[in-house]
Structures are given as structure tokens and as C-alpha cells.
């Protein structure tokens, strides 16, 4: 899945010690990031970690306190207008002009941007099941998000920057969006998407960067991250069990016992776990799910990201 960085082309996004301080908050600290052409890059972090600050800096909405960034080889501040000919952007917490219809909204941005094919817009609207004839102000947030998505995609940008794109979308539309993202990457275009949920990113991303307290904690190929993925395993037994009997199983990181129920934090071989447990106890029920990002993060990057505990950036 991971593509090698092509030597001939400049990075889609490149940041050098990109830093943004607000009056009393370090929103972004020395961000060094390289996103390669043709990849889908997931930018992961809990709320207030600095994802949106990073994106807004890339778009020249806000100016870095220090450091610099380039997009498609162009300086994000000096050449911001030229950059914006080649990107599509979906802001987090999208706001549109309530008194325009979806089609008016897209026409407006198409006029400002150029290079928009209406056939493609209609195709996108059909795929996302979006009604463009209604006023944006009268749409539900999910349907508004679709209009935002279409405007980001409609000029077939070289780089697509999306801040929490799945917000408000139903699962069917989310799946369609994921398919679109993979198609874009397949065409050699680049997608940079931020998210606070790993599950959203892992279906589409080639690599993920994890950001916390304004600092980039790690950049991992998704395949590597997945191999680290901790699972929560909940087991129910016929009789009460002793926590000690689970601690010696390889990969078990934490055990919580409530009478007949046991919850494990586990990152070893599922096969070995099941065999051991079935040998020792009578199992009634088993459920397992992926641990959320924060759990993984705490497990792996706690020591590497000693950021301040209080105060997030004003997103």
C-alpha cells in the first residue's frame, strides 16, 4: 500500500518546523511533515490536538509563528493564490451561505475557481445523493456536508484537504466517499484528511500522522499501525473467574474482572488467546472490538508526546 516517494515530483505537502502559538496556547509545535503525491494521508488526533490549526496554516488562513510550509512545491504564504488553483478544501464544521441553493453555491465557487465540469458535478451529486436545488440553509447538516464535499471535489484538485469529512454523513454515503477517495489516489492525486477516529481513516489511508498537543507524535504506514492495534476483548463465563489466570497470556496488557465478565486490552495473537481461554474456562460469549485511537495512542506514544495536559488550541 505504501508508495515510495517519487524523486522527480515535489511533495504534495511539506512542512518545516511549522509552529503556531496563540496568546497562551501552543497550538502547533515544530510540525515536520511530508505528504507524497498520490497518497492518502490521514491526520489523526483527539479534539483540540492541532489538526485544524495545521490545516488552516497550510491554507494561509492563519500565519505560522515560525517555520514554513509548501504545497505542490509552492510556498503556502507567498504563492497561496496559485496553490488554491490546485487544491480542494472541505473545512471542518462546514458553514455555507444559507440563502443560496446547493447549485448556486457550487456555481459561485466554480466561477471563482475555474476548471469545473458540470457533468462531473452532476455525477458527484448523484453518487452522494445530493439535492442541489434546495437552499443550503434548509438542508440537514449531512446534506449540507455533501454540498461541501462536491465543492471540494468538483475541480478535480491535485490535492484534496478535508477536515473531518465524514461529519454528519450516513454510513452508505461514508462508504461512497471512501470509494471516491481511493479513486482520487488511484489517479495519482493526493488526499489529506484529518480525523479523530482511526476507523474512519484506516479504510482509506496509506499513512497516518498522529498529532497530540500540537506535536506530531508519529507517522506510520497504516499497515504498521494496524499491527499495533490494540483490541478490547470482552468475555463472559459460566462462573466467576480470577484475573490472575489471564495476566500470563502473551499480549494481554490489562485485565478487568467483574464477576463473570472479563475485559482485556489485547494486542497479541487472537488464535493463541482463544485457545488458552477455552482450555481454562467455559466461555458463554465473546465480543471484540478495536480499541479507539486514544487507547492505542496512550499505549504507544505516551512517552513520546509529553505535551501540556491542559488547554487545547482555540479551534
Amino acid at each position: 500500500m505504501v508508495r515510495e516517494k517519487p524523486m522527480s515530483r515535489s511533495a504534495a505537502i511539506h512542512t518545516q518546523n511549522l509552529t503556531k502559538h496563540y496568546a497562551d496556547v501552543e497550538a502547533l509545535v515544530d510540525l515536520n511533515l511530508e505528504v507524497w503525491p498520490g497518497e492518502v494521508f490521514g491526520f489523526l488526533g483527539p479534539n483540540g490536538a492541532g489538526k485544524t490549526t495545521a490545516i488552516r496554516t497550510l491554507l494561509d488562513e492563519i500565519r505560522p509563528t515560525s517555520g514554513r510550509a509548501s504545497i505542490l512545491g509552492m510556498d503556502t504564504h507567498e504563492q497561496s493564490v496559485e496553490i488554491r488553483r490546485h487544491i480542494g478544501y472541505l473545512p471542518g464544521d462546514l458553514a455555507l451561505y444559507p440563502n443560496l441553493t446547493g447549485r448556486d453555491t457550487l456555481t459561485y465557487f466554480a466561477n471563482l475557481r475555474g476548471g469545473v465540469s458540470w457533468e462531473y458535478v452532476d455525477e458527484l451529486a448523484e453518487r452522494l445523493n445530493s439535492d442541489l436545488s434546495r437552499k443550503v440553509g434548509n438542508l440537514s447538516s449531512g446534506n449540507r456536508q455533501k454540498v461541501g464535499l462536491i465543492q471540494a471535489l468538483m475541480n478535480r484538485p491535485q490535492l484534496l484537504i478535508m477536515d473531518e469529512p465524514s461529519t454528519g454523513l450516513d454510513p452508505l454515503v461514508q462508504r461512497e466517499l471512501q470509494a471516491m477517495i481511493r479513486e482520487i489516489a488511484a489517479e495519482g492525486r493526493t488526499v489529506f484528511l484529518s480525523s479523530h477516529t482511526l476507523s474512519e481513516v484506516q479504510r482509506v489511508a496509506d499513512r497516518v500522522g498522529i498529532i497530540r498537543h500540537g506535536r506530531l507524535a508519529a507517522v506510520e504506514a497504516l499497515a504498521d499501525l494496524r499491527s499495533k492495534a490494540i483490541r478490547r476483548v470482552e468475555l463472559e463465563f459460566e462462573s466467576a473467574v480470577d484475573a490472575a489466570t489471564f495476566r500470563d497470556i502473551p499480549g494481554v496488557r490489562e485485565v478487568t474482572v467483574e464477576n463473570h465478565r472479563v475485559v482485556l486490552s489485547f494486542d497479541g495473537s487472537m488464535d493463541a488467546l482463544l485457545r488458552t481461554i477455552v482450555d481454562r474456562h467455559d466461555v458463554l460469549d465473546i465480543t471484540t472490538r478495536e480499541a479507539d485511537l486514544e487507547e492505542i495512542f496512550l499505549a504507544y506514544y505516551r512517552d513520546e508526546a509529553p505535551g501540556p495536559v491542559t488547554g487545547g488550541p482555540p479551534e
Binding site: 496553490i83 488554491r84 473545512p91 458553514a95 465543492q151
Partner: peptide
């Protein structure tokens, strides 16, 4: 105030 400036300025206009 209505948070549309970011989107507007994501277009190639200064």
C-alpha cells in the same frame, strides 16, 4: 462570523 471566509479563500483569489 458565519465561517464562510475560509472556504471562500480556499479558492484561487487573493
Amino acid at each position: 462570523q458565519r465561517r464562510t471566509m475560509g472556504l471562500l479563500l480556499a479558492n484561487p483569489i487573493s
